[in-house]
Write a protein that binds this DNA or RNA. Structure first.
Ligand code: MN
Ligand code: MN
Ligand code: ZN
Ligand code: ZN
Lengths: 153, 153
DNA sequence: CCTCTATTGAGAACGAGTCTCAGTTGCATG
DNA sequence: CATGCAACTGAGACTCGTTCTCAATAGAGG
């Protein structure tokens, strides 16, 4: 199913409305394609003279998350306050490759990771719900300009 | 090497001092054993009439992170603002099993995950630096009282 | 001592995200 | 249409973890 359709159905199922504001915000996010922050979203909308309040944006992001269409990414291994948001398909894993040089975020899909998570939880009697993997590494472009880093372990 | 020794060497190498305040904070963190938040640390110190300011605590946590002895954990898949801190060994991976019911955090070590990260980065020409995996799942105790959750994917 | 840093505490500042509340909109129903 | 009512919205106050500022203090070396 298309993302928009999924969002509309989600709203409908909750007795909520697909309003002009929600439409504008949704379209902006789709237009971005890449992970974005709320700052950038606000600026983008302001540039196009689309008036929306911060509150409405956060409320819409919340709905998108609840509908399974949006996820958040925390960019730093040590400071979990700088968040990006990104539209996603209907899967519940959040695996990202993050360049520590330029901040570029790439989606990663690897069956092996999901398998490991399943094993880990089963071994301990847990019931798996979801997981989030962030891999911090230098992209090829940044390596050409940049520093070498200590390897994992 | 012992953690305290490692911290002292780190400070020394930077021309910094192992002060009374830093000592008290370090001891409190060791005494905790479990992941803690700054709130809790402040309360713990206040109870024992050890006077330290918030600023000094944050500054010390920063140093501990830079020395490789401390890591942060973000507890929610969607909201990266609630952080815990936890002493750790000298490895750079941050893998945690987090109970979505009671919030219990368990360390996880799995070679397979580090291997996957290595493969993913190598395939794309990245240079691996570190990774952070959070697995969200219901612990056995919470399952006895609690809800069933949707499985991963 | 004297000097030069590193350090500290108090509290102001910051900033992403949330809440409040009064006014608006969408929609169903008579 | 008119009326009713819940959902929705924007402005701005608020929260709360974290960082910054700055004046006072402490350590180490000469
Ligand atoms: Mn921005
Ligand atoms: Mn607390
Ligand atoms: Zn890069
Ligand atoms: Zn639990």
């Amino acid at each position: 199913m298309e993302a928009l359709e999924q969002f509309k159905q989600f709203l409908d199922g909750r007795g909520l409305k697909y309003t002009r504001e929600r439409e504008k915000i949704f379209q902006a996010i789709v237009a971005f394609e890449k992970p974005f922050d709320v700052d950038g979203l606000l600026f983008y909308l302001k540039q196009r003279e689309i008036k929306t309040s911060k509150a409405t944006i956060y409320r819409t992001l919340q709905l998108l998350q609840e509908s399974g269409l949006l996820r958040t990414i925390s960019l730093s291994p040590t400071d979990h306050r700088t968040n990006l948001y990104s539209l996603c398909g209907k899967y519940r894993a959040y695996d990202h490759l993050i360049c520590t040089g330029c901040g570029k975020v790439t989606d990663v899909e690897k069956k092996q990771i999901c398998d490991s998570c399943r094993t880990i939880t089963q071994d301990r009697g847990y019931q798996l719900e979801s997981h989030s993997l962030r891999i911090f590494a230098l992209c090829p472009e940044c390596q050409k300009k940049g520093l070498t880093v200590e390897n994992c372990r």
